[in-house]
């Protein structure tokens, strides 16, 4: 598997993603500068966390016009896998690769471990996870409140596009388990084609016991299994 990690000015989880792929999975990764036009044959594109363009205007709003995003959109259009993590999720929504929007948290910036439940295993990022698996990994964001119109969210639910929800220790999607006010506790979604996935939590920061959780591994192992299938 070859993973292209897009580096925007202001990305700061690009190295974490690189370490997850190269050191933990022992797979290939390549950094893609935002002004590049070549995905270098990457099977998977990761839009990493950070504050691309300082989150000016709205998080992700400027980054979506970076030159490389045209190639990323074309990759997604061809059915290629694109993963948006945190700021990358915001960029993917602004680029209309994913439905909805991520607004300012209800409650301000949150940096903490959360538990998310895998709602769907028919995506490239969840195929190796058991349905209903509860995974613990960190969040660190100020603008992660997933928002869409009720009608659009109903359609997404019917189509199985809600793939992660914030849950409590008992695995229930309660209000107190929701760290940012996301509608219906949504932590991650996919597009209609199921090849573009976005999530606010950071699986790349939960890859080994030293990081206090290895629960992110199964999501990267899902990518690997999908690419090798």
């Amino acid at each position: 598997m070859k993973v292209g990690i897009v580096r925007f000015p202001g990305s700061n989880c690009d190295e974490d993603a690189w370490l997850a792929i190269v050191e933990q999975l022992r797979e290939q990764a390549v950094m893609l500068w935002h002004k590049d036009h070549d995905l270098q044959g990457s099977d998977v594109i990761i839009l990493p966390g950070g504050f691309a363009y300082g989150d000016y205007l709205r998080a992700g709003a400027i980054a979506r016009f970076s030159p490389i995003m045209r190639e990323v959109a074309a990759h997604a259009e061809r059915g290629g896998i694109v993963i948006g993590i945190c700021n990358g999720f915001q960029v993917a929504c602004e680029a209309h690769l994913l439905p909805g929007a991520l607004l300012r948290n209800n409650g301000g910036y949150r940096s903490m471990p959360v538990t998310i439940r895998v709602e769907r295993t028919d995506t490239p990022m969840t195929s190796a996870a058991p349905k209903g698996a509860c995974l613990t990994m960190p969040i660190a964001h100020g603008e992660g409140r997933f928002t869409a119109s009720e009608d659009d969210l109903d359609r997404m639910e019917d189509a199985g596009q809600v793939i992660f929800r914030y849950v409590d220790a008992a695995g229930e999607a309660t209000a107190s388990a929701n760290p940012n006010g996301s509608m219906r506790n949504v932590a991650g979604v996919c597009n209609a084609g199921r090849n573009v996935v976005g999530l606010m939590p950071h699986p790349e920061r939960a890859m080994e016991p030293l990081l206090r959780s290895s629960d992110g591994r199964v999501l990267f192992e899902s990518l690997l299994a999908t690419v090798n299938a």
Binding site: L57, A101, L103
Partner: peptide, 8 residues
């Protein structure tokens, strides 16, 4: 196209 998010 840019200044407002049509979703929100």
């Amino acid at each position: 196209r840019l200044l407002a998010n049509p979703v929100t």
